[in-house]
């Protein structure tokens, strides 16, 4: 929906339900966690889609399904025409060269016993792209420079670097296989603000220079607004609103999106002093036993009787702006 001409990635009706089991000797399934419960989105080549929402909304699980770290329980993930949800393992290997990931925590996603050069060089070796060690080292140096690090960092260990430098290594590793699509899962969330801005600029430069496409999974709305072309807001396994970035931030229509935006304090005491603010009440319900009808209705300030029974589907209320709420006209 976000891309008119054949998107690079198209997710259709994606479902990831995890069984909840009980018992040690005989495991019985007693329920399901509907981590992702029927979502659709598309990303055009060269675009960045921001997938936002709070913990447990299913944004990370969605990313894991695209990487096929989980096998989805329903729906299709069309990547350049191939369905990642059902593709054979053998075909998956080739596809993984094209799809890479950058994780949140550069402390735990880099092997502490490997030098930076080995960390970045390993995927090149594993995928048999460059078997010659000298040429591989040259490629690692190139990647380090591309990510704003001195090539001498190849001889360091992750613990000898700062958080921002480590995240640059994580990005260099993701770029090693020359992918076209990168999933950034909270890639800048653990960084201090001054460093965060460096990494945001780096991601933006790389996208332009290398023609990359990003799925940017995050909870920080101000970073998402800065970096993304389109935004999809998730709540309890579903997309409740999606639109081009400026449209969704200037004119949020779903009550949950409005609550999320209002919850972010602006770094300006004058603006904050003038702003009337009441936080949305209640907490996110359990995805094991989600509310009937619209999943947001127990916390929604504008819910009506009908919201308890009917699940609203995404509908286009303005050009390119989709909202799953029956009360939005």
């Amino acid at each position: 929906m976000s891309a008119a001409a054949s998107p690079l990635l198209e997710v259709k009706g994606l479902r990831m339900h995890f069984p909840v089991t009980e018992g040690v000797l005989r495991r019985r399934k007693i329920g399901e966690v509907k981590a992702v419960d029927g979502i659709d989105f598309a990303i055009a080549r060269g675009d960045t889609l921001g997938l936002v929402g709070e913990s447990g909304c299913g944004k990370t699980t969605t990313g894991r399904c695209i990487l096929r770290l989980e096998r989805p329980t329903g729906g299709a993930i069309l990547y350049d025409g191939i369905d990642l949800a059902t593709v054979e393992r053998s075909a998956l290997r080739a596809l993984r060269r094209r799809i890479q990931v950058v994780y949140q925590d550069p402390y735990s996603s880099l092997n502490p016993r490997m030098k930076v050069g080995e960390i970045i060089g390993e995927p090149i070796k594993v995928h048999g792209i460059e078997r010659d060690a000298r040429r591989r080292a040259a490629r690692v140096a190139e990647l380090l420079m591309l990510c704003g690090l001195d090539p001498s960092f190849a001889d360091r260990y992750p613990h000898e670097m700062s958080g921002g430098q480590r995240q640059r290594v994580g990005i260099a590793r993701a770029l090693a296989l020359e992918p076209e699509f990168i999933i950034c899962d909270e890639a800048v969330s653990a960084l201090d603000v001054s460093i965060q801005a460096q990494i945001v600029n780096l991601l933006e430069d790389l996208r332009e220079r290398l023609g990359l496409t990003y799925l940017f999974i995050a909870h920080d709305l101000s970073v998402v607004r800065h970096l993304c072309h389109h935004v999809a807001v998730m709540y309890l396994g579903r997309i409740v609103e999606t639109a081009p970035t400026d449209e969704i931030f200037d004119n949020p229509l779903h009550p949950y999106t409005q609550a999320l935006l209002a919850s972010v304090p602006v770094p300006d005491p004058d603006v904050e002093a003038a702003r009337a603010f009441r936080p949305v009440t209640g907490e996110v319900p359990s995805p094991i036993n989600p509310p009937s009808g619209c999943v947001f209705h127990p916390r929604c300030p504008i819910a009506v009787e009908g919201c308890r029974s009917a699940r609203p589907e995404l509908r286009e209320v303005r050009p390119g702006h989709f909202v799953a709420c029956s009360e939005v006209v």
Partner: peptide, 16 residues
Amino acid sequence: SVPRLDRPRRSRLDPI
């Protein structure tokens, strides 16, 4: 260096 929701979008952030 912080992006702000109440200001127009900048083309680049200004890191330290």
